[in-house]
Structures are given as C-alpha cells and as structure tokens.
Write a protein that binds this DNA or RNA. Structure first.
Lengths: 142, 142
DNA sequence: TTCTCTGCAAACGCTTTGCACGGAT
DNA sequence: ATCCGTGCAAAGCGTTTGCAGAGAA
C-alpha cells in the first residue's frame, strides 16, 4: 500500500520516482530495522529478480544525499540506513546484537540505564560546521 | 619521555610491554587526534622501519579488548583510536573535517550549538546489555 | 624449548567505478 | 536523439587470516 505516497515522498525531495527507488524507499519506510544494503537487496530481490546490489548502493546514496534517509554507523563495516522523521538514538545490545531505537531525551547521561537497557558504552557524535569555519564564512572551502 | 609510564600503563592492563606496543600506546597517548591505523603506522614507521601494519592492527585491537583505548567511528570506513581517561563526545566539522573533542555534558540537545560549533546532525549510540538479555541472565548466551 | 610477538602475503567483504545497455522524454 | 536509471564485472581499500620466522622467558 501507500505506493502513491512513496512516489510523492520521492518527488518532494526532487527524486525521480522510478520503480526501484519506490520499492527501496517503501522497504525503508515499512522496515525500520536499520537495514544494511545487503538486507535491502536480499529482501527485494525476491520480488525483483533483476535487481542489482549496485542499484541499491546508488539509491541509498541518493536518498542520503537528499536527506531522505539517514546513514547509521553503530558498528564498523556495517553501513545501515534509517528512514525516520523523528530524531532518535540507538542502543545496541552486545549480547543479542539487536539495535533499539531510543526516543527519550532527558538525563541521557545521568544514569547508566536507558529504557531499561544497561549502558556499558556510549558514543555521541555531532556533525556540522565548526566555529572556525563559521567565522571564516564560505571562503575557506577546499 | 615517560616511556616508563607507558610500560607501566600496559602492565596495569596485563599487556606485555613489547617495544612496538610501547611505541604505539605512546603515540596514542601523546597524539589525541583520533588516528586511524594508517595514521599510526605512517607516523611510527619512520622511526621503526620494520614495523608492519598488521602489527598496528593487532596492537590496537589488543588495546581495545583490554579497554586501554576506545575505537571511534564517526565516519564510515575509518576506524579511529582514542586514548582518553575522560569520557567525551565528538564533533566533526563537515567543512574542514576536523574532529573536536566535546567535554560539555549538560543540555546537549537543547540547542543547535555546542562549544560554538553549529550542529547539523548528531548520532548518539549506546552499547550494553538490553533489558531482555539482562533478565534472561547468562543462560541466553550463544 | 616453548610461548608470544611480529610481519609478509594472500584472502576477504563491503563499497565504488567504468562502461554499456535500455527505457523514458 | 538525448538523458538518466540500471546492472554487470572489475577494481579499490581497509581489515583479517594463515603461516612462518624471530625474540623473550
């Protein structure tokens, strides 16, 4: 369902709504499981036998560049992709390896628990434009 | 300097203090620049011509397993290594690509600035033992 | 001697690149 | 006819593995 909405969503971001792109975005919207490229490919190739992994790579890269989906890196060498309107954090269980979404915001760092999960490590990374680059304006490019 | 302290630091963590390990840890302690394996290798091979990248891989992996250094993944396909007693966050400038340490803790998410840097994205990942694995105790290993 | 550290070379796995085919406009 | 999406095959690159030689205990 909501294939039309998916196509519209693509157009909102100025992405031409090809069949593959619709299916890939649809998968991301309906499966908020932080899939890898391989996850997406394996799930979709059953219904689209001609699908290639290159297309999945191309497509998620395009989606990320258009800020339609977010790339998540919790573990190394596994790029995962995440469609979500709501900013959130992740909790990865070292035992069962599941990746949980965390929406709670307050007192994140005041205890060693979050949503009942025992925190052993955390990694908080910000990206943006640093104060030096901000004051230097655009001229410092390159 | 402080070669002796480095050796002691290794012994504290039950790591035999070989020459290479001392030099690699010394480099990490003195260069809090979140170096990659390649950074470490390139810096040290000048003074230790026989050094191999495999040894650097082996060594940082050992350090991480002994919790002597932390593995940082801000960008994909670049594993960086970080010696630091103080837990902290990172801010990566999208323009100049520099990686800043952030020690401030309060109101992290209440504004779109931190230490004067303009935040455009953030990624907060936790790792530990999830509530299900905790209640299941040790029996659920596998 | 035995155990561990070291290092070369090859293998590995994810990702990217180059190029050509095919469909849409 | 042109542009863009797609896909195969090969290359690329960081990392891991296997194994052998060197050094320490």
């Amino acid at each position: 369902m909501i294939i039309n909405n998916i196509a519209q969503l693509l157009e909102t971001k100025n992405i031409q709504a090809s069949y593959h792109r619709i299916k890939i975005l649809e998968y991301l919207v309906n499966n908020r499981i932080h899939p890898t490229v391989d996850n997406i490919y394996s799930a979709l190739v059953k219904g689209i036998p001609t699908l290639s992994k290159t297309t999945v790579y191309n497509t998620v890269k395009l989606f990320v560049s258009k800020k339609l989906v977010m790339q998540v890196t919790v573990e190394d060498n596994e790029a995962r992709y995440d469609y979500s309107e709501t900013p959130h954090f992740h909790f990865k269980c070292k035992k069962c390896e599941k990746l949980y979404d965390i929406f709670q915001e307050s007192d994140l760092l005041k205890s060693n628990e979050i949503d009942g999960h025992r925190i052993e490590e955390y990694h908080i990374d910000f990206k943006g434009i640093c104060s030096f680059c901000t004051t230097k304006g655009e001229m410092a490019n390159g």
